[in-house]
Computed example of a mutant assay.
Amino acid sequence: MTKSVLCAIDLSNGDHDVPVLQQAARMADLDGAQLDVVTVLPDFGETWVSGFFEAGFHDKAVKEAHDRLVEMCESALGKERNSSVRHVVATGTAYQEILKAAEAAGSDLIVIGAHKPDIKDYLLGPNASRVIRHSNVSVYVVR
């Protein structure tokens, strides 16, 4: 029985990940599991990158990403369902942060999209592939 489902969303994909989110919600609902939704921002604070951004840029980017994530979840799942979703914005390398979020939440299942929308074949994207390879829990890939 699944107790916690983590859904990884890439906000830069626009609405492409809505079916991933909806599938994750269906899977969580089957077992009455907690649904957590995570998106990952690049680390703007890295030494070689941080000099290009104004002070406070990272905090502003995290807040905007959180607001967009909540908005996307509400639009895709409805206001009532979204009220029980935990929205997580992480910073760093996508696959590593997804795995960290899954471990922190005690997730039994990770739901992730297969690839970027511009890839027209059946290959997994690099982040989905790495999550699958390094995860200690089951990973469900939505194509």
Rank of each mutant, 00 (worst) to 15 (best):
R68F: 05
L69Y: 02
K116P: 02
V141W: 00
E80D: 15
S75L: 09
V139H: 02
I110K: 06
V85N: 09
V88E: 12
E64R: 14
D36W: 02
F52T: 12
G56F: 05
V49P: 04
E103D: 15
G113A: 08
I98C: 01
L99G: 04
A76P: 01
D43M: 00
L123K: 14
A101K: 03
L30G: 11
N136Q: 14
G51H: 09
A101D: 04
K3S: 10
L11P: 09
F52P: 00
D36G: 13
V37P: 03
R143Q: 09
M72N: 06
Q96G: 08
Y140G: 08
Y95W: 15
V85D: 10
V18L: 05
G113S: 08
E54F: 08
Q23M: 07
S84D: 12
R86Y: 07
K3Y: 01
S138A: 15
D121N: 15
A24G: 08
I9E: 00
S4C: 14
M1P: 11
A128V: 06
L99Q: 06
K79I: 07
K116V: 08
M72Y: 08
V20R: 03
R81D: 13
S138K: 10
A61I: 00
S83M: 06
E64K: 14
D31E: 11
V89F: 08
V137R: 12
H87M: 11
D121F: 10
T93Q: 10
D108K: 07
P19G: 04
A61C: 06
E46M: 15
G92S: 07
G14W: 07
L41Q: 06
A94V: 15
D108P: 04
M72V: 09
L109S: 02
R86N: 15
A61D: 05
L69P: 02
Q22W: 00
A8T: 06
E46C: 11
V5H: 00
A8V: 07
G14P: 06
S83D: 13
P19K: 03
N82T: 13
C7Q: 01
G51P: 08
S107L: 03
R133F: 03
H134W: 07
A90Q: 13
L123E: 09
D67V: 09
A94I: 10
D121A: 11
V89E: 10
A128Y: 04
E103Q: 14
S50A: 14
D15T: 13
L30D: 09
G56S: 06
A61W: 03
H87S: 14
S135F: 06
G78F: 06
V131H: 01
A102T: 03
Y140L: 11
Y140T: 13
T39W: 05
G78W: 05
S4E: 10
S4V: 13
V5G: 01
S75M: 11
V142K: 10
C7L: 00
A24V: 02
L123Q: 12
C7F: 00
V111W: 03
R143K: 15
W48V: 14
S129T: 07
D31A: 15
M1T: 12
M72L: 15
E74T: 14
D15P: 09
E97N: 07
K60L: 12
D118T: 14
I112V: 14
Y140K: 12
N13H: 15
D43L: 00
F53W: 13
L41S: 03
I110C: 06
I132M: 13
A25D: 09
V18P: 01
